[in-house]
C-alpha cells in the first residue's frame, strides 16, 4: 500500500496527490511516469510524474477525472492509500543546454511540464512557457511553472484569465518575431500536441511530445501502447513516452486511444480538447 501524504484540489476535477514511494522518488527523472492501481481489482493506469521529493520519499501525480479509475482516485483523501504504485517507468526527458526552449502544456501537462522546465532551466536554457485552459477555473500550477520559467504566458479560450486564445497563437507570435527557439517540449491532448508540432515543423524546431496511450504493464510486455513514429512501431512505455512530434503518426494514436469508445462519454468536458473532443 502506498500512502497519500497530501492532496491538493487544483480545480474541481483535477487533483494533485503526493504519494509515499521512497524508492521511486529516489530515481525519478523529468518525463518519466508511474503506473498505479487504486485497489486490487482496479485497472493499471499510467500517470506522468508531476514532481518528487527525494528527502521526504514522495512522488506527486496530477489526476484529471476522466473515467472510472481517475474518478475512483479522486475520491481518495490524505491518509488513504493506493494498492500499487510502480516506477519510475519510461525514458527520462533528454535535457541539455539547447539555448532557448519552449514548454507548452494544457490539462494535466500544466503540472507535469514543471520538472522538465526546471531541469531545462538548471541546464542553462532560457525557458519560455505557454499554458492554456478553456476558462480561469481550469487553470492550475501557474506559480510552480512561473518559478521555473523565464517567461510564462497564460491564455484562456474565453479570456477570463490572461490573454484570450490557446497555446498556438502566442507560440506563433514569438516565432514570427524571430525568437530563436531551439527546441519545444509539449504535453497535452493528442490534438494539441499534433497542432503544435505542425507549427514547429514550419519553423524547423525539433519538438518533443509526451505520449500517453493506453497501457497495461508499462514494462514493454503487452504492446497496448504501441505507436508509430517515423514509420516504425514503438512501445511508448519503454521507448518513450517522449517522441519526436514531427515523426508521430497522430491519427493512429488518436484511433488507438479510442479503444473504449463508450468511456469517452464519461469524459468531463473541461478536459476534452476543445478541437477534437479527446482528452
Amino acid at each position: 500500500m502506498y500512502k497519500i501524504l497530501c492532496r491538493e484540489d487544483l480545480t474541481p476535477t483535477a487533483h494533485l496527490f503526493e504519494v509515499e514511494a521512497p524508492s521511486i522518488a529516489r530515481k525519478a527523472q523529468p518525463g518519466q511516469f508511474i503506473i498505479l492501481m487504486v485497489d486490487e481489482k482496479g485497472e493499471r493506469i499510467p500517470l506522468t510524474i508531476a514532481d518528487w521529493d527525494r528527502r521526504q520519499g514522495s512522488v506527486s501525480i496530477v489526476v484529471s477525472e476522466v473515467g472510472r479509475t481517475t474518478s475512483k482516485l479522486s475520491r481518495l483523501k490524505k491518509g488513504d492509500s493506493v494498492a500499487h504504485f510502480v516506477g519510475p517507468l519510461g525514458k527520462p526527458a533528454e535535457i541539455d543546454n539547447f539555448g532557448n526552449v519552449a514548454c507548452l502544456a494544457i490539462g494535466y501537462g500544466m503540472a507535469t511540464i514543471v520538472p522538465i522546465a526546471r531541469a531545462l532551466r538548471e541546464a542553462g536554457n532560457r525557458v519560455y512557457s505557454i499554458i492554456s485552459a478553456p476558462t480561469k477555473t481550469d487553470l492550475f500550477g501557474i506559480d510552480r511553472l512561473s518559478e521555473v520559467s523565464d517567461t510564462l504566458i497564460v491564455t484562456t479560450s474565453d479570456g477570463s484569465y490572461g490573454e484570450q486564445g490557446w497555446v498556438i497563437e502566442p507560440l506563433r507570435h514569438r516565432l514570427d518575431a524571430g525568437e530563436p527557439i531551439k527546441r519545444a517540449f509539449v504535453i497535452g491532448s493528442v490534438c494539441m500536441m499534433k497542432l503544435v508540432s505542425a507549427v514547429t515543423k514550419e519553423f524547423g524546431i525539433k519538438t518533443v511530445v509526451s505520449l500517453n496511450p493506453v497501457m497495461v504493464d508499462g514494462t514493454g510486455m503487452c504492446g497496448a501502447c504501441r505507436v508509430a513514429v517515423g514509420g516504425k512501431t514503438k512501445f511508448a512505455c519503454v521507448d518513450g513516452p517522449e517522441f519526436d512530434g514531427h515523426e508521430v503518426d497522430w491519427n493512429l494514436l488518436m484511433a488507438r486511444r479510442c479503444t473504449y469508445p463508450v468511456r469517452l462519454e464519461e469524459v468531463a468536458t473541461a478536459y476534452r480538447c476543445q478541437y477534437c473532443g479527446q482528452w
Binding site: R44, V216, M221, C222, A224, T233, A255, C258, T259
Partner: peptide, 28 residues
C-alpha cells in the same frame, strides 16, 4: 496497429492477471 489487434501477452494479461472476464468485479 489497428485497434482490436492485440499481442497475446496483452490479451492474456487483461484476461488472466487483470480478470477482464469478471467485469462486474474488476475494472480492466
Amino acid at each position: 496497429n489497428f485497434t482490436g489487434i492485440y499481442s497475446a501477452n496483452e490479451f492474456l494479461t487483461r484476461v488472466n492477471l487483470m480478470k477482464a472476464y469478471l467485469p462486474e468485479e474488476y475494472d480492466t
